[in-house]
Design a protein around this nucleic acid. Sequence first.
DNA 1: CGTGCGATTGAACTATATCAAATTCGGTGG
DNA 2: CCACCGAATTTGATATAGTTCAATCGCACG
Lengths: 252, 252
Amino acid sequence: MSQEQHVEKLIRHLESIHDLSARDRETLRALPLKISALPARHDIVREGDRPTRCCILFDGMICWNKTTGEGSRQILSFHVSGDLPDLHSLHFGAMDSSLQTISPSTVGFVAHDVVRALTKDHPTIASALWRSTLIDAAIFREWVANVGGRKAYGRVAHLLCELFVRLAAVGRVRDGRRCELPLTQNDIADATGLSVVHANRSLQALRRDNLVRIDKAELEVLDWPRLKEAGDFDVSYLHLNAAAIPPTPVQI
Amino acid sequence: MSQEQHVEKLIRHLESIHDLSARDRETLRALPLKISALPARHDIVREGDRPTRCCILFDGMICWNKTTGEGSRQILSFHVSGDLPDLHSLHFGAMDSSLQTISPSTVGFVAHDVVRALTKDHPTIASALWRSTLIDAAIFREWVANVGGRKAYGRVAHLLCELFVRLAAVGRVRDGRRCELPLTQNDIADATGLSVVHANRSLQALRRDNLVRIDKAELEVLDWPRLKEAGDFDVSYLHLNAAAIPPTPVQI
DNA sequence: CGTGCGATTGAACTATATCAAATTCGGTGG
DNA sequence: CCACCGAATTTGATATAGTTCAATCGCACG
C-alpha cells in the first residue's frame, strides 16, 4: 500500500476527534515518514527507552504494556489504525511502559523534530494531536474504572465495546457489525486483569448469551444494546466527533 | 493565606516536572485567579459538565472518580498541592468523570481563555502544562497496572508510595517520612478497587509488618525500602525532575 | 452525653486464580 | 495432501483472595 493511502488513515483518525482544514490535510500528506512492516509480538519501544521519533499505526493492532513485579503483563491500552500511540514521548525522557505489536502491523515513524516543527507551524494540527493524547488519557481513566470496578463478564464486554467503536470511528467495521479482533485470549486476559482461564469463560458466556461471535480474529457484534449494557459502556469518554460514532448495528 | 503564597505552590509543582525561567514565574504570579475554599466531598466538576475554567489545587486533596453501572465509585487519581487536575477540560467538551474534594480544600479557578492566552504567549509554560497532563496520563497507566495486576496488599502499598512521593516532590513531607493522608479507608478502597473491609485488612497488614503508621490523617513511612518493594513501586512513571525525587527516608 | 461516621471484627459466601490435562487450530515441511 | 508441531482454546477440579453482610467499637463533635 502506498504512503499516500497510509497517511489517509492518520487523517481519518484525527478527523474522528477534531476538525481539520484542507490545508492541514495537505500538510499531513507531505509528512516525511519511514514506513515499516513489523511482525506480531514485536517491541516498538521498551520501558526505559528514550525514543527520538513517534510512531503512527496504519494497519494491525499494537498495545502498551507494563510488566509488574510478579512477572505478569498488564496491557494498558490497545491502538488501532490511525492512532499515534507514543505521541507523548515527545515530552518525556525515558518511557514508562512498552509498546508492542499484537498482530503484524504497518507503522510509520516520524522524527520528534518533524512533529515539533509541525505543531509549531500548524496550530490546528497541534490542537488535534494534543487532543489525541488527552483522549488516550481518558481511555486510561476508563480502564482504571473497568479493571477496578467491574466483574469479569462486564470487563470483557466493555473492552469489546471500546474496540468496536474505535474501529468503527476510523471505518474499520464491515456490515455495521464486524471488525478485526487479532487478540488472543491471553491478550484479553492481560488487558482486563483476569487469568486466561477466566477470560476464556467470560468470552464463552458472552457468546452463550448471543452478544457476540468471535471467529478467525474477527468480532461480530450480535446484540449491541445488550453488549453495551453488559459492559456498562458509555461512548462519551472516547470524545469522538458525532459523525464518527457508529450507529447502533442492525440486528440480524 | 495570600494569593501570592498560593501561586508559589503551582510554581513548585511545575518546577518539579519542568524547568521555568524567572520570567515564566513572574507571569504565573500575575495569573488572575479566583480563590475558593471548598468543603470535603464537594463536587468541583461533574461528569457531563462543560467547564469554562480550570482549577488549581493549593491545599487539601481532590480526586477524579467515575460511578459504574452497579453504583460503585471508582477513584481514578488523587491530586495534591500545586496540581492542575482538569487542565484537559481546555480541550474537551463534556467531562467524562467527576472531580471531587477529598478533604476541605483551597483551589484557584482560572478561565480557559486565560490559560489559552498564557500558552499562546509563553511556550515554556505551555510545555510545562502539556507535560503535566501527560504525567497525569502516565499515572493513569500506572493505576491500570496497579488495580489490574497486583494483589490487595501491593495495591495499597503502591498507592501510599505514590502519594508519599508526590507530596514530597512539592515539599509536603515533614521529617523525611510524614505526610498528610486525608483519605478514609473507603476512599482507599474505591481507589484500589477493593471492598472497604479488605482495604482495612490490607492496611492492617502493612502496619503489622511495620511498613507504615497511619494516624490522624497522617501517613508515616517506617520502612521505605520494604514499602516500595511491597508496592512494586518504581518512581520513574511520575517523570519528576531529579531534584524533586525525595531521598530515601531515614529509618528510625 | 448522645449521635453518627469511620474503623474494625467475624463468619459465610463467591468470584476468580491456579494447576493440569485435553482438544482444536493454523501453519509448515515432507 | 497429509502428518506433525506448537500455540491457542477449552475443560475440570481444587484452592484462595476478596466480597458481602452484620454487628461492634471508638471517637470527635454538637
